[in-house]
């Protein structure tokens, strides 16, 4: 697919919640230049896997991760890895839009501010403006940046969350079912946005919606019961799956 090494390499990853194994020996490479979709039925572990990539599982009390996950060759689970920096480099967009109960401006400015990315007020304003433009929200909110972020519509909130994530200039953006709470029009806007962001950021997206995976991604991983069943080019997976379980799922036999 690409001629340079993958952005993230995950090898033999296992995740337990207490005694229950949620991820069983999964190995995946995430490419710099493409969108990688993780699909599979509910409870198959795709979200869990996504959250291991920026160590958001650390916040779950009894979760345990085993295996090797490297970002540009750096082991993200090594004791030398600063989790705060990791999460700045690997941004995340969540299932339910979760803007801070603050102004639109503050929502976007928060990340750059805590990481000290802007040295002046005008530079920060510039970052906020660029991020909102890149998230396709600028035209809709430019006159009301001081309004509360929670007053926006669901789709706008989700784009605000994407703007917030790209404001810290991450290398990877993880999206955990970003459209599952949105209507079709808002979903279309987010999908357009994913197209526009592709190439600049490595993107991994978890989705329930197979059409969406087919539309936005270049590579698709199919998870089932915590295992990676099949991983390859999206066109291959959807037109000519190797595994029977994949074929059953994408033809709607279960899931």
């Amino acid at each position: 697919m690409s001629n340079h090494p993958p952005k993230i390499t995950a090898t033999h990853v296992n995740v337990w919640y207490g005694a229950k194994k949620a991820i069983d020996d999964v190995s995946i490479d995430i490419d710099q230049d493409s969108v990688t979709a993780l699909i599979g039925p509910s409870g198959c572990g795709k979200s869990t896997f996504l959250r291991t990539l920026n160590r958001m599982n650390d916040t779950v009390a009894n979760a345990r991760v085993q295996g090797d996950i490297r970002l540009d060759g750096e082991d993200i689970y090594s004791p030398d890895m600063d989790v705060v920096q990791l999460r700045a480099r690997v941004g995340m967009v969540f299932q339910k839009p979760n803007p801070f109960p603050k102004s639109i401006y503050e929502n976007v400015a928060y990340g750059p501010r805590i990481h000290g990315l802007a040295s002046s007020r005008s530079e920060l304003e510039g970052i906020v403006q660029t991020s909102l433009k890149r998230a396709g929200l600028w035209e809709e909110v430019k006159d009301r940046l001081s309004d509360s972020g929670t007053a926006l519509s669901g789709g706008q909130q989700q784009r605000l969350c994407i703007a917030r994530a790209i404001a810290v200039d991450p290398e990877v953006i993880l999206m955990d079912e970003p459209c599952s709470a949105l209507d079709p029009i808002a979903t279309a806007k987010i999908e357009e946005l994913i197209h526009a962001l592709k190439g600049r950021y490595a993107i991994a997206i978890v989705t329930h919606n197979m059409q969406q995976a087919a539309r936005v991604s270049q590579r698709t991983a199919f998870f089932h019961l915590g295992q990676l069943v099949e991983y390859g080019a999206t066109t291959e997976i959807f037109t000519n799956p190797r595994e029977e379980r994949t074929r059953d799922y994408i033809t709607g036999r279960y899931g």
């Binding site: 958001m56 916040t59 941004g91 995340m92 969540f94 805590i114 917030r164 994530a165």
Partner: peptide, 27 residues
């Protein structure tokens, strides 16, 4: 305080103490 707010703050790389003082405590 909704866990989604904590997730959001952690997601942009806030440290635990920043999560507490910038988000959890005000709410």
């Amino acid at each position: 305080v909704p866990p989604s707010i904590r997730d959001a703050a952690l997601g942009v790389g806030a440290s635990p103490i920043q999560v507490v003082f910038h988000h959890v405590l005000p709410l």
